[in-house]
Design a protein around this nucleic acid. Structure first.
Lengths: 188, 188
DNA sequence: CCATAAGCGGAGATAGCGCCCCGTTTCTTG
DNA sequence: CAAGAAACGGGGCGCTATCTCCGCTTATGG
């Protein structure tokens, strides 16, 4: 991304879009592990072209994942205005899981599998965690959620559900989330 | 392992033990990702020696992980005789988490990160899941645990906690397990 | 102590993947 | 339409990690 020095040439723009789209599909299906050449092949371009647009693999990964994470952050921010804090929290949680169910990339992004943790992705993931944290605290203040849990623990549990979706052992995410929901309720 | 054709020579036995011990530490510290050469270096032997004893990396990984998994299976079997089914179940869960906290290998083994799924490890992991399943069913029959959850969902949640222990975001496993525990209770 | 063979160990073959280069093609502009 | 620049594409380098081969060492049994 050369700081928008000049509008890209027509075919360049087209190729870039094809790369992004192919990468979206490839990352969604296989996660961070897909070879760059495979993405280039699917996009119908050469590896060199891919490299020109995205100097490193992580740059490409970031471009794809950040936008998806930001959508989730957006949704979480919107949920803040919902009257019932607990409902808002669970709505966001379900949205995250639903998104990850179709898009494997998020699993790698949230668990940090094979990615250098210094990247921008980590920061965006942290932002999501912060939003969840805000929702959680509000629900705790409201009194409907137990106080002795933090966003880190909650994200860990969600991460387990997300990860298991890819595993060989089929699970029912709704049931796993039901356990989390009931476990979060104030014990009385 | 040539089917115990003849007892190994003294130094061979010694080297093998050193390799196993080094591998135990290395896998526990780093997980499946450690280079074989690193293990060989720690053991004070050459890569060739390592390969003679364990023809492939997964063979070595199996040798280490299986024994640890079998210990957990053993513990789970023993828990069957405990009078309170729910207590037995949570005892086993805590044992698994505690074990994984110190031994990263188990994370990879249970989540199947980077390992060919056909291996013997997967079978042993499944065995552990079956034991958990038995304990879970007994507790459900006893009436103290909700019926609409399977071992797969439970293992997913546990997996999330285990995995988060390694992540950059520090979590309190006890609190996460508390959520699981309360979430599993029969809703009334 | 000597002969034998089991075992050692490390250099390197092999493979996969990220990253780079440069001759060629294709778009733009006067 | 022609000249220049921008972008293409794929062959290739280098790194890393697993696995193999072979000349040397060392334990063992008479």
């Amino acid at each position: 991304m050369p700081a928008q020095g000049r509008p890209l040439r027509a075919d360049a723009r087209r190729n870039r879009d094809q790369i992004v789209q192919a990468a979206r599909q490839a990352f969604a299906a296989e996660g961070f592990g897909v070879p760059l050449d495979e993405i280039a092949r699917r996009a119908g371009v050469g590896p060199g072209t891919l490299y020109r647009h995205f100097p490193t693999k992580e740059a490409l990964f970031e471009a794809i994942v950040r936008e998806r994470l930001l959508l989730l952050v957006e949704g979480a921010k919107a949920a803040r205005s919902r009257p019932d804090a607990a409902g808002a929290l669970f709505g966001v949680i379900e949205a995250i899981v639903a998104d990850a169910q179709a898009k494997t990339e998020l699993i790698d992004a949230l668990t940090g599998a094979g990615i250098d943790v210094q990247t921008e992705v980590a920061a965006t993931a942290a932002k999501l965690r912060e939003e969840v944290d805000a929702l959680l605290r509000r629900a705790q203040h409201e009194g409907s959620i137990r106080d002795d849990v933090g966003a880190a623990e909650l994200m860990a549990l969600i991460g387990g559900v997300i990860l298991a979706l890819r595993g060989p052992q089929a699970i029912d995410p709704a049931r796993a989330l039901a356990v989390i929901r009931d476990g979060l309720r104030r014990s009385a």
